[in-house]
């Protein structure tokens, strides 16, 4: 008997910031005979129900594999009513992705809309330092703002020179501070002699420049696994001795940072999804135990 084709959906910004990724996914999944529907969060929610009868495990109908690739639909200039509807759609789609019994790439968890990745980029890096068995260097951080109208003294600015600075007022990052800024700013010690290396985790493998020592691939996989991510980008600062400092972890993938990897990412995700769809249902930890009432 012929098995029906696998049907999956990708939830992403297919007409905007993830258009290239969406196209690559369509091609890769078609080549592996997976029917892939590209959906906004609104479209996903329009076609799915969640049934909870209080006796059996929750049912997502229809339940199909998902690529959870964005947290929400774009939301420019919303009215208060639109904002409420936007929040409702976000909450509904997150529940669908959490409760689906099918494989979900970057499945949201009770702790985060994307795997277990924390809501702050700072914590996303800092918490890796505490992972058992993973000796990863991270930097101290400092957050400062002067009071409005205050001017920094000649010897005491908000930011030391030689720092990597993110300015919240402009949304720009820089090294050192040419002109003192009121901020707020986030600063970390800069590593001027280090080179920035990107390792992309996709499915069960990594995409990394050939010149990167294997340790970085393994460490990047460990970082992604610790956050329960199947698609992530891990950025390292590698010094002349080959030692690495974790610089950033991205749990969402946008076209602007694809750098030609779109088809490799898409293919890795298709392979992951096929493997997972064949595997027995592992259950949803903490969310689908049989109902037990005291």
């Amino acid at each position: 008997m012929t098995r029906p084709p696998l049907r999956a959906a990708a939830v992403l910004d297919r007409f905007g910031a993830q258009r290239v990724l969406a196209g690559a996914l369509e091609e890769a999944f078609a080549s592996r005979s997976i029917e892939l529907e590209l959906l906004s969060h609104r479209a996903l929610v329009a076609g799915v129900s969640i049934v909870q009868d209080g006796r059996e495990r929750p049912r997502v109908e229809p339940d199909r594999p998902l690529l959870w690739l964005s947290a929400a639909d774009p939301s420019p200039d919303l009215t208060p009513d639109d904002r409420f509807l936007h929040s409702e759609v976000v909450a509904a789609s997150r529940s669908i992705a959490m409760l689906s019994r099918s494989p979900v790439v970057n499945r949201p968890t009770p702790l985060s809309p994307c795997g277990r990745f924390p809501g702050s980029a700072v914590m996303g890096v800092r918490r890796v330092a505490g992972l058992p068995g993973l000796d990863v260097a991270v930097r101290c951080e400092r957050f400062t703002a002067m009071q409005v109208g205050e001017v920094a003294g000649a010897d005491e600015g908000p930011v030391a020179s030689g720092a990597e600075v993110y300015d919240y007022a402009t949304g720009r990052s820089a090294y050192g501070v040419a002109d003192r800024v009121p901020g707020p700013v986030r600063t970390r010690r800069s590593l001027p002699s280090a080179r920035l290396v990107r390792v992309r985790v996709a499915g069960r493998g990594v995409l990394a420049p050939g010149s990167v020592p294997r340790w970085f691939e393994t460490a990047s996989l460990d970082v992604a696994r610790s956050y329960e991510l199947q698609l992530a980008t891990v950025w390292w600062l590698v010094d002349e001795a080959g030692r690495g400092t974790l610089a950033r972890v991205d749990c969402w993938t946008w076209d602007r940072s694809l750098d030609g990897d779109a088809h490799l990412i898409a293919d890795a995700l298709a392979v992951w999804l096929l493997d997972e769809a064949r595997a027995p249902d592992p259950g949803l930890p903490g969310l689908d135990a049989e109902v037990a009432v005291p």
Binding site: V48, I50, A91, A289
Partner: peptide, 23 residues
């Protein structure tokens, strides 16, 4: 994210009223 919240409450041993989220 209420449907997932209800699922967790129920799986944690609490009695939760039946519900439906749908469009």
């Amino acid at each position: 994210s209420k449907p997932a919240h209800y699922a967790w409450l129920s799986a944690s041993g609490l009695r939760v009223p039946p519900s439906l989220m749908s469009s």
